[in-house]
Design a protein around this nucleic acid. Sequence first.
DNA 1: GCTAATATTTCGGTGTGCCGAAATTCGCGG
DNA 2: CCGCGAATTTCGGCACACCGAAATATTAGC
Lengths: 198, 198
Amino acid sequence: MTGPVVEDYVKVIYAHTEWQAEPITSTALAARLGLAASSVTEMVKKLSTQGLVSHEPYGAIELTRDGTALALRMVRRHRLIETWLVQHFAYSWDEVHDEAEILEHALSDRLLDAIDDELGRPARDPHGDPIPSRDGSIVRPDAVLLADAPAGGRVVRISDRNPALLRELESRGVVLDAIVRPGDLGAEALASIWVATA
Amino acid sequence: MTGPVVEDYVKVIYAHTEWQAEPITSTALAARLGLAASSVTEMVKKLSTQGLVSHEPYGAIELTRDGTALALRMVRRHRLIETWLVQHFAYSWDEVHDEAEILEHALSDRLLDAIDDELGRPARDPHGDPIPSRDGSIVRPDAVLLADAPAGGRVVRISDRNPALLRELESRGVVLDAIVRPGDLGAEALASIWVATA
DNA sequence: GCTAATATTTCGGTGTGCCGAAATTCGCGG
DNA sequence: CCGCGAATTTCGGCACACCGAAATATTAGC
Ligand SMILES: [Mn+2]
Ligand SMILES: [Mn+2]
Ligand SMILES: [Mn+2]
Ligand SMILES: [Mn+2]
């Protein structure tokens, strides 16, 4: 049906609007995928033909209903696999992303669901990202960026983009559900941590 | 280094000589891979350039030392994954092949070794095929095709090529280590089962 | 409003792995 | 040895996903 390439495109498009509002531009999409802008323009045209994204020339890129469904399927796969690597194989939270990036395209639905059951249907992954359910519904916790929460709060989500930062934060006790204040941390951390304000 | 396509070629070339003597021809290789003969000819030429295979035009195809090492690596992956699916996820022996065919290209070495440890370093897969060790050594059990063993013997290996046959055999009690006689079984079974003669 | 910087698309081209058809080589029967 | 059918290779071509350079559209500064 759709291969790994299409799966990665829609996943990145989805991820961009998950914790921020603005839809993604083709330049930003190219940067995140590590591709030339021209490659992305062409691929987005194909995705549009397939009905997965809507895009007028020079405009932003948005997922259609079908595109969102596929993206949620991939997000579920990615996050379940990350969770499984941590829980079952004692990976640390900074080591799981690359492996999940590959396995998300390879496991059968049957195996993925078996893993989901074995884990007890977890609601969030090691970084606090919510895991879509089998039918594609997802509950995004209420949270604000630590940079925008002067009083701090309980850690709800940490971006898994920078493994080095994850290692440093863990060593300083900044893990899911810990209480943090913005004054304790550097600029990159402030822009990577989401907190629930009491 | 090498992608899934190369991995599948060397794996099939290796598998052909594992339980029989003759090296594989390009026509047979094409048939097993489900490809046109012309595609195989061209790919074999590339494998030869990469030093994985030796092949003079119109001759048979044989793995070099490097090619054998890569093939053993893939065979180990395939068989460990099959074993894991059966032991850990209760797949039956006729269901594991297709999933392993994909996962063998996707798991990291780290994850594969973790699975190997979890399984207790199994020596054979669900079909009795020996699993190469981490360093690439493999012990092929002494066995003869049931068709060539008039007195029968203990089942040591059953080809996993035909899932329907596997299901039928299991329902009739023909599993690894069972004692069978050739008279009890049909022609295809006789050509799929290897036995150790007491 | 105009212009210059920037974002985006278009265009010609590449590498990989595949195909069918045509050409070549092999090997067997006589 | 010769010729014929089967195996194998060669050849032109295709789909996919990518690239850099050039063209074009947008936007921001003035
Ligand atoms: Mn991740
Ligand atoms: Mn994550
Ligand atoms: Mn198999
Ligand atoms: Mn097997």
